[in-house]
Design a protein around this nucleic acid. Sequence first.
DNA 1: TTCTTCATGTAATTAGTTACATGATTGA
DNA 2: TCAATCATGTAACTAATTACATGAAGAA
Lengths: 216, 216
Amino acid sequence: MSIPELSTTSYAILGLLAVRPWSTYELARQMDRALGWFWPRTRSKLYEEPKKLVALGLAKANDDPVGRRRRTVYAITPKGRRSLASWVREPGDGPVLEFEALVKVFFAEHGTKSDLLATIAGVRSWLEDRAQQSQQIPEEYLNERGPYPERLPWLILTGRFLDEFDVAVERWVNWATETVESWPDDITGADPDLEALAAMADRNAAVLAARRERSG
Amino acid sequence: MSIPELSTTSYAILGLLAVRPWSTYELARQMDRALGWFWPRTRSKLYEEPKKLVALGLAKANDDPVGRRRRTVYAITPKGRRSLASWVREPGDGPVLEFEALVKVFFAEHGTKSDLLATIAGVRSWLEDRAQQSQQIPEEYLNERGPYPERLPWLILTGRFLDEFDVAVERWVNWATETVESWPDDITGADPDLEALAAMADRNAAVLAARRERSG
DNA sequence: TTCTTCATGTAATTAGTTACATGATTGA
DNA sequence: TCAATCATGTAACTAATTACATGAAGAA
């Protein structure tokens, strides 16, 4: 490789630049709006990465002063498009989850039943905040006002993943709330939900059986 | 605060030390087995963090040489237990997702239909690998052979979340495969699945309506 | 006795976050 | 005209990963 292995973050930004040129601020907004849901990065990264792309000839920077301040607008180059295309064709990594609240559930013995319920309730709030933030996007497109409608078929693919994810969280919150509410106040006396456990084991077995069937 | 704000990773390790003392290697295995599914960290972190805990008086290190090499076994202190307990009672952050393959889906216009199908198929393999890796744990507990059975009620809570997550991924893979297969070879001619889009908008609205009902 | 896997750790590097600073624009 | 918010960026710091090195134990 002549190119020293860009990170996924670099390619994510390069991908946005392939849609159109953006100033850094616009890139940041775009990350908030969409990409950030499954590739979250802090804003300051968005000032660094494009510089790297420019250094490699994958993008170019245009200075576009606003008043006394400079603003940098980045655009993709043909070389950048080629690099992006070859990245897109390689299958990517699977989902990675980080879930602090669940770590606290995992160590629930150090808190009370009501602490645990509060932790779970916090996840419900998270879900609601998220519903709030993401509500306008599908509506824009349904009203034929969403940007870059030619990309819509695959934007729906990604949106649907996030939707399934939220459904999973919601289902879990509902079940976990009920389950913990049924426990005694001293949670060390709780009975394990062995039915749930058996269901997990079964589903797991089903996935593996399906694989054996698929692959011979 | 006298304690300079530990990270979630620190508390995760502290939580494990509260179960029993472990050598670093055992900690690493334990991360692979369970915590790593929702708080993934590289192995070398597991050598660093305990040192920090020791410096703060939250854990103590015992040297336990094996042949000519040293091995360090860490144990929690009473102060460590107090610190852990106060962390557990605060509700934690919601789930954060990173999903490289989905970034590639998002930029699917730079690849072909079959590239896209391959990306989705990669996610199915991920799912199967995961089923493989996690299969024995529920079975151990169902056979009453799992370690620390007194923690089982909340271990099932966390396991169930991961199960719901996998179900979501599986549902998405199935739907996405079907959807993309129905597209023309030139994906720029694909029709957006507006029904799916409308369903997402509806679910979103339902979550928000439920919140209004709850809090109003 | 040698190969492989288990086990133990450090060092160098990269990625990512937090904190800060300040100009431009808008609307009360 | 002043406060709030939008916009632009850097610097210092912390977290995390990758690469490396090597001893111990068990199997062939």
